[in-house]
Write a protein that binds this DNA or RNA. Structure first.
Length: 235
DNA sequence: TCGACGATCATCT
DNA sequence: GATGATCGTCGAG
């Protein structure tokens, strides 16, 4: 087997652990990866790739946008006042949060912006991880076009913030409830280039002043010092 | 049915 | 740092 062939094996192949090759960045994450509490999943999503494929027009060749996740927030379902699913709230909107881990939860905020979350844990846990910021890996020109950015913009202008990120990647509510761990599909999450624990900073979540005891929970995670963060994290 | 508000962002001062 | 944009969502009545 050539090294190139080895590289495209999925992360959890049938090979024994001792001889398992490093997973390719574009390999899908297994569904079990998402089936754990959001505060455990959120830091582990840092460095992973979010991949959006699309065709500029019908019949055109598929194009690909790749974003490396650098900032996430965990939302802990029924016990978390900042969560849409606090106290087990079930509405048409939050129904998606009760799916098993690995699905996308996309909703509109402030009437203008869409936010992408990944559902975490088992069915009915209603845990979710908000994807807050990312760094371009592939398709930066197209992302900049979608964002209407000037050449002098800062790195964090592209996808630093949940609304900016979805706009740069062309993600909207049509992607709600989509499974992200499939090998194919218009929106996927893959192995990417994970970070080590010492590269991760944590702090309180953004924009949840109303959440009482949950306001200060350190459930925001980011890659330490990354210029693509939506705003600085405690060092 | 109505009204308040939000896991945001761009623009202005 | 303050403010306006803009509309879906959800609780109140």
């Amino acid at each position: 087997m050539t090294p190139a062939r080895r590289l495209i094996l999925p992360p959890h192949s049938s090979q024994p652990t001792s001889t398992r090759p490093p997973a390719h960045p574009f390999s899908p994450l297994p569904v079990e990866f998402f089936r754990r509490p959001a505060d455990e999943l959120a830091p582990d999503l840092l460095g992973r790739y979010l991949i959006r494929t699309f065709r500029a027009r019908p019949g055109a060749r598929p194009r690909r946008l790749v974003l490396r996740i650098v900032e996430t927030e965990a939302y802990l379902g029924s016990i978390d006042r900042a969560s849409h699913a606090f106290a087990g709230r079930r509405t048409p909107r939050t129904q998606t949060m009760y799916l098993p881990g690995g699905h996308a939860y996309v909703y509109l905020i402030y009437g203008m912006y869409e936010c992408l979350n990944v559902v975490a844990g088992s069915a009915d846990d209603a845990h979710a991880v908000l994807i807050r910021a990312g760094a371009p890996v592939e398709g930066e020109t197209e992302m900049r076009r979608r964002r209407g950015l000037s050449p002098r913009s800062r790195p964090s202008d592209l996808a630093g913030g949940p609304g900016r990120l979805t706009r740069a990647m062309g993600i909207n509510r049509e992607f709600n409830a989509m499974l992200l761990c499939r090998a194919r599909g218009p929106l996927r999450m893959t192995v990417g280039s994970p970070v080590t624990p010492d590269q991760i900073a944590a702090g309180p979540r953004i924009g949840i002043d109303y959440a009482q005891e949950a306001v200060h929970w350190p459930l925001r995670f980011g890659v330490r010092g990354d210029p693509h963060l939506s705003r600085p994290l405690p060092s």
